[in-house]
Structures are given as C-alpha cells and as structure tokens.
Nucleic acid binder design. Structure first.
Lengths: 193, 193
DNA sequence: TATCTAATTAGATGATTATCAAATTAGGTG
DNA sequence: CACCTAATTTGATAATCATCTAATTAGATA
C-alpha cells in the first residue's frame, strides 16, 4: 500500500533536525561535518538523520575524494509533499489508465521487431504509453543523463530519438533540468512496465 | 519561525492511523465511533489522534445532539503540505544581497557612535540589515532568551528595543516560540557579520 | 606500507508516544 | 430527577526514537 510511503515521508519530516537539514540542502549540497557544525550536532547524529532522509529518497549523495556530499532531491520533495493531497483521488486516475499485463505484452509484441527495435510509434494513446514505458525500463533511477546519452540510448530502439525523448518528458516518465535528464519516480508514470 | 509548526504538521501525519483518519475525513465528516469502527480501534485511541489533528488545525468539529462530527479542513491541509516547499525561499532571494566586508565596516562606522550605541536605525534596507547583523553578534547560538533578556541586550545599542527585536525576527536572524527567542542558523541570515 | 580524514556502526540513555481498559464527563432524553 | 450515549481523561505498558561516546570502517594520500 502507498499509505506506508506517505507515513514514512511525513515521519521523516516530523523532526526539527531533519527539517533544518532539508532547509540547508535546499540551498545546495553539503558534506556531513558541515551540516554537523551548522546545526551544532555530532557527526553520528547527522548520519542517523541523513539515513532517514535517504531511505525515503529525499537525499542522495556523491563522493568527492574523502568527502561525501549530500544533495536534496527537489522533485521528490515536491512530489511527496503533494501526495497527501491526492490520496484517495489518485485511485481514480491510475485506475482509468490501468492496463492489463497481458495487454502490455501483446502491445510490445505488435510494435517491436524480433531484434527489439520499435517498428513505429503507436498513435493510439494507451499503446504509445506502454511502448514508452517499455523502452525506458533500463534507465537507472536517480542517475542523471545528458541529452547525448539519452539519444544514444533511444537509438537502440528507434531513430526518432527527439520525439521519444519529448514524449518521455511530456508524460512525466522523466524530467529535464538544465540539459540533464533524470527518471521521475514511477508513481508519476502514466503506465509502469 | 514556522519550523515548529512544520514539524508538528509532519509529525501529525507521520502515523498510519492519522493518515487513515485524514483519508476518511476527506470524503466527508464522521463521528468518533464511526471512525473507530472503520479503523478497528477503540474510541480513546480516536480521541487521542483527533486531538493531534485538531491541534494543528487540520480537523475541526461540530456537535449534533449527542454526536460530535469531525471535519477535515482541506485548505489548511493544502497550505501546510506546501509549506515545506517554500521554507527558506525568502533567504534565497536575500542571498543575492552580498555585501562587501569593507562596506560593512563603513556602515558600522557611520551608524554607530564611538561608545558603540546605534545613532539611528538605517532606513535603507541593506544598511539596516548590516546593523542588525552587527548588533546580534554577541547572542549565543542554541541558547534561548526570554523577551526581557533580549530587550536588555538590545538596550546597550538602542532604546527602541521593540523595533529591533521585531526586525530580527522578521529578517530571520532569530525566531520566537512561545515567548522564547533563539538564534536561527547563520545560513538563514540575510547578512552575516 | 602506514597514516590521515570523513563517515558509519554499536551500544546506552532518556524522552516521546500509540494503544487500551477503566473511570469520568458532557449533554441529551424519558 | 434518573438514565442513556458518545466522548474524554487517567494511568499503565510496550515500542520507537534522538542523541551521544567510543570504536570501527572506507577511501585517499604519502
């Protein structure tokens, strides 16, 4: 159930230290000791809190030499903050676009060649979304790609990478931020493969 | 500042029972025992949880004969859910107001007497913020002060402690929480001295 | 290799909290 | 008034959790 995710998200923000960490990271990445100093706490305490924020996907990290920088995932924050407003209604939305598993498979079979390439982009909305979800499945959540990488990836399926890339963004499979592309959480997808 | 309010809001939603109550009330008002039945809990437990939701203003109630109906305040839910996205926003704006060190010194020289008292509160925004940052520098981070202590402290600089105290809070140098004052982390300050 | 730095883990402590049974209260209605 | 119903308070219990110190790990550097 998605209830649990909502609970964990709000529980994570239900603590003054973690709210302050989020506030700090909003302005840019920081490493652990910097956070500890700014908040007047010890490093183990920061590890403890950052772990909780990472568990719910709100924070990710990148290493630079000995130092680990923590980043805030703004999109995820926004998405989760709004989730409580949509609870109970999202059932309707996803229900309308629910596609049976066997239908998904037959769509794939019809529109993809034996070698895995896309014969043509389906014009019917539902089928198009299934094809888009299928093709995006090998991109990694949390990883950022530049436009060239995305194009190369798409080419294994179809030559018109511009259209497919645009459709992915348009239907919230991914988002673009100053030239970088990244997967959205699957809950935002109109269809999951 | 609204940190505490934010924390209480998210803490209130950081519990599966309360999320379920909110979900139920989204569809319309209910009385206590109805909620208890739907959730398989005892009435005292519902009282306990509804009290927390009422404390943060998310739920209000109306009596009809012997029965008390609980209502969800949709507006407040939406406002509070979005608050986390807006926290620190003003800081970002004022962050652009970078002041050179030498300018800071000349501002201090111009507005403070030889004995250290503030001649007058600068009306120009930038200069005012520098003066405010200068005067607050001896307060201890993490320590809480009551209003009287703050007033006494300000008096060493200027007689109009009410204005200066209000400006400090307004510009996020410090925040007030039930009569107690405390420094904000310097990252929230529009100017650091 | 030894050494340095930043982060994490382990374990302890004190505080908070979700839940319930029992008793009590607040407001009706006969 | 006596009685009824729904909600609340009280007090107890078990679980969760924020924070710290001390010890350990992961990776980089010399």
């Amino acid at each position: 159930m998605q209830l649990d995710k909502l609970v964990h998200f709000h529980k994570a923000l239900g603590d003054p230290t973690r709210i302050r960490i989020v506030t700090l990271l909003k302005q840019g990445p920081l490493h652990g000791q910097a956070i500890a100093n700014k908040l007047g706490l010890k490093p183990p305490t920061i590890t403890h809190h950052v772990a909780k924020l990472r568990d719910i996907g709100l924070v990710y990290q990148r290493r630079d030499r000995n130092t680990i920088y923590f980043y805030l995932d703004h999109k995820k924050l926004e998405f989760n903050a709004n989730a409580i407003l949509k609870i109970g209604e999202e059932t309707k939305v996803t229900q309308e676009m629910k596609v049976e598993e066997k239908d998904k498979l037959s769509i794939i079979k019809n529109f993809f060649d034996a070698d895995g390439t896309l014969k043509q982009i389906p014009s019917q909305q539902k089928k198009k979304l299934v094809a888009l979800a299928y093709m995006i499945r090998q991109l990694e959540p949390g990883k950022t790609y530049n436009e060239k990488e995305i194009n190369e990836y798409i080419k294994q399926y179809h030559g018109d990478f511009a259209t497919i890339r645009r459709e992915w963004v348009m239907h919230h499979f991914m988002y673009r931020e100053n030239g970088q592309y990244e997967l959205n959480p699957k809950e935002m997808w109109p269809v999951i493969f």
